[in-house]
Design a protein around this nucleic acid. Sequence first.
RNA 1: GGCCCCGUCGUCUAGAGGCCUAGGACACGGCCCUUUCAAGGCCGCGACACGGGUUCGAAUCCCGUCGGGGUCACCA
Length: 544
Amino acid sequence: MPVPKVVTRFAPSPTGYLHVGGARTALFCWLLARHCGGEFLLRIEDTDLARSTEQATVQLLDDLRWLGLNWDNPQLVHQSQRTDVYNRLIDDLMARGLAYEAWETPQELAALRQEAEKQKRAFIYQRRNYSTDQLAQFAAQGRKAVVRFATPVQPYSFHDAVLDKDITQPIEEVQDFVIRKADGMPTYHFAVVVDDAEMGVTHVLRGQEHTKNTFLHLALQKALGYAQPVYAHLPVIQNLDGSKMGKRDRDKKVRERAQVWLKTHQKTVDDLATAAALDAPGLGVWIKDSKTQLDLDQQQAVMQAIHLKESELPEILVNDFRRQGYLPEVLLNFLALLGWSPGEDRERMSIGEMVRLFELKDIGKSNAKFSRDKLLSFNTDAVAEADPNRLIAAFRDYLSVNPASPLTPATDAQLAELLDMKKGFRLLREVDELSRFLFVPDDQIDYQPQAVEKVLKKENNQGASVLRDLRQLLEGSATWEAGALEQQVQSYCSEKNLALGKVAQPLRVAVCGSTVSPPIFHSLAFLGRNRTLARIDRCLTILA
RNA sequence: GGCCCCGUCGUCUAGAGGCCUAGGACACGGCCCUUUCAAGGCCGCGACACGGGUUCGAAUCCCGUCGGGGUCACCA
């Protein structure tokens, strides 16, 4: 007998960029499918018309592609385009007496819930019968009904593949739930069940927040005559402090910092709006209301206005890591380890190894905290071992999502050189930020006051006088090449009895404006003689 | 609060009754290397939540306590 093919699916709702939790779910689904030689399908759950956007779908697909999580269905399933399918099934359930129209308004239901809470008992929806008069009244008011599923009252239970145990719903918790909203769209519960069945999904891997939803899905599957897939609920990914890792964490941080900025700078929201070139009323709402969020462009504008650096924000979205310069396979490797371990102390794995080793039974039961340190270390190692061409391609990709970087016009050969110069780097962002001075016009180098003070002015302008000597030395050097330049400077050092640091640092500050840069002689070689001398001259002029 | 789930170093985890004096990785501390930032080398610190059982023997099995998380929508 042939083993039935494993079919998994990732079914995000298009409300924004993919975040790491979603990425891990997608990864596990993908790994299982690939490990078993099955299929991995993608479906867009856009039944919430108000929150779903086309833009978000595009972003989601882009993130998935970047990660390399390829899906097997050529045409995407959009739930919003399948309402007639759902409606036919819902109408059929109604005809069979398994679903009915319910007329309570959201306000009424909220009141009932509040009442239940006051009485310290769980709210259970009770079906109501309406008189013909009432119904006529509702119709006259234009009130729209929802459809509820008449859940057969019985215990529901399933075997969870992660917990490796049966989970049972207490029978008194069974209640009728909405399957078609007032706007005519199916609810999530109805659409997933129908689509999973129609797409032949055999294994449902999803976040633990869905565990209790499974009972509803079981009831629906039974009524619709569908087979029950294998369920596996994944542990939650948390922040280091134990809070749930959510998309809003960054927005929260930006808001906090914006509020601090307003206070310390004695500014108004209008000032901020002007500085960020944003709409003032909108910004005013955002800054006070933690339920609202800025979109990515607005967020960047505010960050720029208040001088909040990218690196000060927690990375949450897959796109954040991409813009930071992580390699996608590293993110995947790290994410896989959040909740899965192949045993035998194995950690650093290629995608291929993960596919080979992935088993449902090795998924852990307890929540995992997301530690960026370890991810950073993984990236450092991966990037050190990566093929040069792979790295150049990754750098290009990095620049494509960091279009403001002055390195954008660099040639591949130049990128390769920068990468090589800064060997031992951890993130592409480091290479980028540390190399920017090489691509900035000579007369636009910013001299950091503390660097100038410490390295050039201190001890009676010792650094500056060294710099004057070097200017002369470099002007006359026979060859302009890193090794030769270093030798020349070395012999200057022994001649003057100076430590290399006393000489290299003034040079560094003169050329790049700060005390930190890639190895200085390679930097000089990259810059060329003319540009180096021009910078030294300008620095000397500014000092004088 | 009701219901459900979980509980090994700071973090991710290995561990399926004797292989455990509990292993690895990251972080951290010290030393070394060094023209800056990194990277690298060596050494070190560090956990079975607690209390009861079961057993010749428990991190592993059972019960309780405590702690943590999830969920209680016309969002997914």
